[in-house]
Design a binder for these strands. Structure first.
Length: 611
RNA sequence: GCCACUGUGGCUUAGAGGCAUAGCGACGCCUUGGUAAGGCGUAGGUCGAGGGUUCAAUUCCCUCCAGUGGCUCCA
């Protein structure tokens, strides 16, 4: 929408002749005059269609501000079709002006609105000071502000009671903070310094400055941790008693493809686009595109439902440059994205609840807990899924914060739950998520054949059980930071610790023995480092502790002649006597069933590059 | 994107309108040492980039870039 503002001593108009799109003229509106007025000549454009509320809100705010600044007493809205070659349809034009009028009135601004669609004569006297003539172009960028006005929040308790967030005083600290932030838009000052970044650095996880904003790189330790977590996310979905098809896709999709473009439109302004030779591409924001693109060609029978499709998909979202946060909000992330293809709504609810249970179980394994923010795309969808929600709440014996999106927008999903942890700085952070999608099967042409030979569009669940791999790492680091905040020693789960054991030789005479022990453990699939440098024992021990090695063992004269080792156990933070066999057995039992990979760098420290 | 702050060898950092600090790390020599840093020495810098003020700018001013925190945002 283009506008021209003129601060005038007076402005008067007279309608002459209606055009075919003219609005009905109320009594006494054929002529109008205003003194000490800010006149806004307004052209509503094609690109404003469908964004009336947003654009009007943005313009109203600006008009009120300018009026105040120049000291005008009132505003006149004057439809003026000549500021742009691309006019909107007349319906949008009229809507926009009325909306603008009511928005301004709501702000207690005196408004005169000239009629739409008439030829009019006018006289104006421009004041001529520097701010008396201004032009503006409103694009409705502050879409959220408009949307937010119509959001609603409710707290749903396990017994079915619905309470306003303002009145609900129960729940955990995490729940209260989530409510304050999401529903009441209150500030909840985070506390303390940011500590997880220190751990990211320790394990070689950082921003890649030679790339775009928000792209991370992982040196060997971090890369190993990443891959282990990625393996784990795969393991989880294959442990769900659900047939799962693991696939591998590409990360860019053409905007010339109808479903891709439509889906992209719903995604909004966070599309990460790149320009190709002949086409423009969108970088995928999850594994959806690839899996849907594949599945539309699959011959699916009702007999093979439900099934899952899975990929740890590199995904891209064009986050605002000031918004990025290492491991948490990035432009490139890795989404262990599971889609479950279900026959119908009841089956999707059944699997929704199973996934919910697994999401909680994974948090609990790390000694963490989640609070739920449940989003609904309409009140009807809430009624449809209310019984399922209540079952979930009763299972966890927790309330959920329900968030209702503005009605009337055709979202592809009906309900999704975001699972939030409370991090060390007392911020609620979304990690896991699951949602029901009733739109994309149709959009992408994915259908199965039912018992009667009819084609049916399935219901699709989207789920990230442990969040993105980066966010899962964030959770691991945050958990360690919290241990430290409580005065304990920070640890990583043993299966994900890049160096599970380190042998340190006292002198060169003990190297052969240390190497022998290390090799025996390595052949058992344990990640072992060997500090074979000619440094003092004190220094080697110090560094082993700084590197968060889980078990550190000094090899000297005593260990050369005995099978018993003095093992520093980081988790217990003390020295324990045991044999090599006992240590191997202990590590194996602690990491049983978890992913394993060998070290990603030379195990001899004398060969390692310092980074 | 907005506001504030920060930007000095690979890392952590001192400094101030006039020779650019130190520690770690790297390299060399000495030391063969039993649970959180052994000693001596060497190399390594367009002080984020560009412009301006000045006899002189890494320091002051402007613009840009990047990072951090907060805000906004988060299908």
């Amino acid at each position: 929408m283009k506008t021209l503002y003129i601060h005038a001593d007076f402005m008067e108009y007279e309608t002459k002749k209606p055009t075919p799109v003219a609005e009905e003229l109320p009594e006494g509106h054929a002529k109008g005059r205003a003194d000490e007025v800010l006149v806004a000549f307004i052209t509503v454009e094609k690109k404003d269609e469908g964004k009336v509320e947003v654009v009007a809100a943005e313009a109203a705010a600006d008009l009120a501000e300018v009026m105040k600044k120049v000291g005008a007493q009132r505003v006149m809205l004057y439809p003026y079709a000549h500021l742009s070659p691309e006019l909107s349809d007349p319906k949008t034009g009229k809507e926009m002006l009325r909306r603008l009028e009511s928005d301004l009135k709501e702000m207690e601004v005196e408004v005169i609105r000239a009629p739409f669609g008439w030829y009019k004569a006018f006289k104006i006297s421009c004041k001529g000071h520097p701010l008396s003539e201004l032009s503006r172009d409103f694009e409705g960028k502050e879409a959220a502000a408009g949307k937010k006005g119509e959001e609603k929040f409710i707290v749903l308790l396990p017994d079915g009671t619905e309470v306003s967030p303002l009145e609900y005083k129960g729940g955990t600290e995490c729940f209260q903070i989530m409510m304050a932030k999401e529903a009441m838009k209150k500030d909840w000052p985070s506390t303390g310094e940011v500590k997880y970044a220190r751990l990211c650095k320790k394990f070689g996880i950082q921003w890649e400055s030679m790339s775009d904003v928000g792209h991370m790189c992982f040196s060997s330790k971090g890369a190993l941790m990443f891959d282990l977590c990625s393996d784990y996310s795969w393991q989880i979905v294959n442990d769900l008693k659900l047939p799962v098809y693991t696939v591998k896709g590409t990360n860019m999709f053409s905007l010339d493809e109808g479903p891709v473009a439509e889906h992209a439109k719903l995604f909004g302004d966070r599309l990460y686009k790149i320009t190709g030779e002949k086409k423009d591409f969108v970088l995928r924001y999850a594994a959806c595109h690839q899996q849907f693109a594949m599945m539309r060609n699959w011959n699916i029978s009702y007999k093979s439902l439900p099934y899952g499709a899975f990929e740890v998909a590199d995904s891209y979202r064009f986050e605002q440059s000031g918004e990025t946060m290492l491991c948490f909000r990035t432009r490139r992330m890795n989404m262990p994205d599971l889609h479950v293809i279900c026959k119908d709504i009841p089956e999707s609810e059944d699997w929704f609840m199973k996934l919910d249970e697994r999401i909680y179980k994974e948090a609990n394994k790390l000694d963490r807990d989640y609070e739920m923010l449940a989003n609904f795309s309409s009140w009807d969808n809430y009624q449809q899924h209310k019984e399922m929600m209540l079952q979930i709440l009763r299972k966890h014996n927790k309330p959920a914060l329900l968030h209702f999106y503005p009605e009337g927008i055709n979202y592809y999903w009906t309900v999704n739950i975001e699972y939030h942890i409370l991090d060390d700085m007392k911020r609620a952070r979304e990690i896991g998520t699951v949602q029901i999608d009733v739109g994309n099967a149709n959009r992408f042409g994915i259908a199965y054949t039912d018992e009667n030979g009819k084609k049916v569009f399935p219901v699709i669940l989207h789920c990230a059980v442990i969040g993105t791999i980066e966010r899962y790492l964030y959770t691991l680091f945050d958990t360690a930071v919290m241990q430290e905040s409580q005065g304990k020693i920070g640890t990583l789960p043993l299966w994900v610790n890049p160096e599970q054991v380190r042998f340190m030789s006292v002198s060169e005479n003990h190297l052969a023995r240390a190497r022998d022990l290390a090799d025996r453990m390595r052949s058992e699939g344990i990640r072992v480092g060997l500090d074979d440098r000619s440094e003092t024992v004190g220094k080697k021990v110090r560094e082993a502790k700084q590197d968060w090695v889980a078990y550190a063992i000094v090899i000297g004269d005593k260990e050369v002649s005995s099978e018993t080792l003095m093992v520093y156990d980081r988790a217990a933070n003390k020295n324990v006597e045991m044999t090599l066999g006992e240590l191997i057995a202990s590590i194996k039992s602690q990491t049983k069933g978890m992913p394993n990979r060998p070290m990603y760098m030379p195990y001899e420290m004398s060969r390692q590059v310092d980074f």
